[in-house]
């Protein structure tokens, strides 16, 4: 088949024959295999409606191509709670809790982002400050002597729902006392042997939210800031409970940190 001069059937150069074989056989076979087994990439065409007001119980319609039931949609960084698949061209996504603004609609499959509609969805709502900075006095409640020694002024700590605490001042440790609310407006105090309360003044930068009653509130972990509540902070050596005695006022803006 291949002669001494390297010609196939005595006519074609061997290397040329190999290249022709590659073009005629290998490439089409590879192309066919890829077309047969590779999933077509999903495409996003539109989101409807393109704008909504803040609220609950709403959903948007996503239109595209090659959608799959296991895909997910996020509105900017916020993932939709479900992906209700109606077919390869249509899906419905319940609206998560979003702040007013314009968002990208991002489509993910099980492993990566696959399509995006930039700045395609707008949420409208009453204007309000995203955060508020409050000065609160109170005490780190029921902490050990070692923990009390680890707390200093200027420390930053965080809590649930994006609350950030800055310690403005630290007092002298006192014997620990637990305040237990037994009825509206009534609390009792119980000593905590071997533990301490460390008075402190904190500046809390707190995300605002609109409660069901329409009031703007500052809350963390489901706890609305108010006297006698305990805010759980992530301290230098573990979680700490800070008992709020008094909300003073809006604190001045924090100094920019180097």
């Amino acid at each position: 088949m291949i002669d001494a001069q390297g010609r196939v059937f005595g006519r074609w150069n061997l290397v040329d024959a190999l290249l022709v074989g590659l073009l005629l056989v290998a490439l089409p076979a590879g192309f066919a295999a890829a077309r047969l087994f590779r999933d077509p990439p999903p495409v996003l065409h539109s989101v409807s409606p393109g704008a909504m007001s803040q609220g609950t119980g709403q959903q948007v319609e996503i239109r595209g191509e090659h959608l799959r039931p296991y895909m997910r949609v996020s509105f900017g960084p916020v993932q939709g709670p479900a992906f209700l698949y109606y077919g390869p061209g249509q899906a419905f996504v319940p609206l998560p809790a979003l702040e007013p603004g314009t968002y990208d609609i991002v489509l993910y499959d099980y492993m990566r982002e696959v399509a995006r509609l930039p700045q395609s969805f707008t949420v409208t709502g009453p204007a309000r400050p995203p955060t508020v900075r409050l000065e609160v006095t109170g005490a780190f409640a029921g902490i050990s002597r070692e923990m009390a020694g680890a707390l200093t002024g200027g420390q930053l700590m965080n809590a649930a729902d994006g609350l950030i605490s800055e310690t403005l001042s630290i007092g002298v440790a006192q014997p620990g006392v637990a305040r237990v609310r037994i009825a509206e407006g009534r609390t009792v105090e119980a000593p905590m042997d071997g533990l301490f309360d460390l008075p402190a003044t904190l500046a809390l930068t707190c995300p605002t939210s609109v409660a069901a009653d329409g009031y703007l509130r500052c809350a963390t972990g489901g706890v609305v800031l108010a006297p006698d509540v305990h805010v759980v902070l992530q301290g230098p050596a573990g979680r700490l409970a800070f008992r709020v005695d008094r909300l003073v006022d809006a604190a001045p803006a924090a100094e920019p940190r180097p």
Partner: peptide, 20 residues
């Protein structure tokens, strides 16, 4: 398998969902 693919995508700078 999913978790290892997410790690692979993060290593290669391929955007993935925040939850992932």
């Amino acid at each position: 398998i999913r978790r290892s693919i997410w790690l692979r995508n993060l290593a290669l700078g391929i955007p993935i969902s925040l939850a992932d």
